[in-house]
Design a binder for these strands. Structure first.
Lengths: 208, 208
DNA sequence: TAGGTTCTGGTACAGCCGTACTAGCAACGT
DNA sequence: ACGTTGCTAGTACGGCTGTACCAGAACCTA
């Protein structure tokens, strides 16, 4: 077996090229040829690794989601109070250039879901994941006693879920209107709303 | 001057055809030909009213936004307390089939903004409009004395803004996961959170 | 060195895209 | 009745799309 190139590494390179094109030109700019050119390959070479365009888009979206999950899950595991919850949730939001990529790609592909049932399924599943995350977050706050006693856990989790998705959407679709600082401030503000006033959480504010 | 067809009516028909295609097949299914066929016209006839595809997309998006605004603005004008605010905000969310159309179209076009600066501008402006609306809503609650005294108006408005956009995104992008009842419940739940517990708001408890 | 496998570049095919042109139809003013 | 004008259908062009085929280069094994 000659020319044993690392297939997974090659696929990763191609997916990253797709991400670059996607962020630069939107989903409309993504084609087999443009992505291949971005990756420095011929369309045929790309097709060797991804037999069809839909497969490419699918793995690109899955890769994006798992990338985000890889960042969040460890933080979730070690989060035990509001400070930990806030740190974890911030990792999900487009608050800096590095983290901005994932949601942007995710949104672009989610919008394309009507054209591809596979993408729709991934999008739905991602949404469910964020919802679970919101539930876990509220559960942690309830467990640590920081959640206001008069709040329903279920409803609060739904609110947090919607808030997160809204911040993601705003931060990606309208970066000019929504600065990272504002995203941080809004998340902190909401946690202030749902947490007991007695708990001194101000320390979690200045992130710098 | 013969055959004096009502241009505006014709344009409206075409825009509605575009909406139907957009909701059925996503932005990828929208082309001059498909929209023309949906409207029962030849591509040439369509081109007579919209000289270019971008113009068509632009007016479709503007029309969507103004359609939503036309529903919300009167409700905003007469909203003086939480009940009015809630009614107004519900008009903005995809809680029934009729109202689902606007946000769906808006989202699809917003996602396409990277390919068209004009769409991006409209999208940004729409976002600013929703933000203003959130501010007005919180302002009304503050004016009626229903807003919790310990809450910052500015921060609460940002939270409400993000929550609304999140609900819109969820309701449109993942209708299977987010039922209209849940959207209503989440909005009510959030208003419960930011309003004084003392104020007896209708059905603010268990929605069913 | 010969053989066999993995990989890649070039080329080709339909098909759809946006846009443009041109001829012709329908209706109104005169 | 007739020309003028508003409007529409047909057709065509170049370009880009996804996909497919095929010859050949690169490399390991023997």
């Amino acid at each position: 077996m000659p020319r044993l190139a690392d297939h997974d590494a090659r696929r990763a390179e191609i997916v990253e090229a797709l991400w670059r094109v996607l962020r630069r030109d939107g989903i409309a700019g993504v084609s087999v040829r443009t992505v291949a050119a971005e990756a420095g390959l011929s369309p045929t070479a790309l097709r060797y690794y991804f037999p069809t365009q839909d497969a490419l888009l699918q793995t690109a979206m899955v890769e994006t989601v798992t990338s985000g999950a890889a960042r969040v899950v460890p933080l979730l595991a070690q989060a035990a109070d509001r400070t930990g919850v806030e740190r974890m949730l911030l990792e999900l939001l487009p608050v800096d250039e590095r983290q901005r990529a994932d949601p942007e790609i995710y949104l672009a592909l989610a919008a394309h879901a009507r054209s591809s049932p596979a993408l729709a399924a991934i999008s739905e599943e991602t949404g469910a994941g964020i919802r679970r995350l919101a539930h876990r977050a509220v559960g942690i706050l309830a467990g640590s006693g920081e959640l206001r006693a008069d709040l329903d856990v279920e409803t609060t989790a739904c609110c947090l879920d919607a808030l997160l998705q809204g911040l993601i959407f705003q931060g990606c679709a309208r970066p000019c209107l929504t600065s990272p600082e504002e995203i941080r401030r809004t998340l902190t503000g909401y946690l202030d709303q749902i947490c007991c006033a007695g708990t001194p959480t101000k320390g979690s504010g200045p992130t710098r």
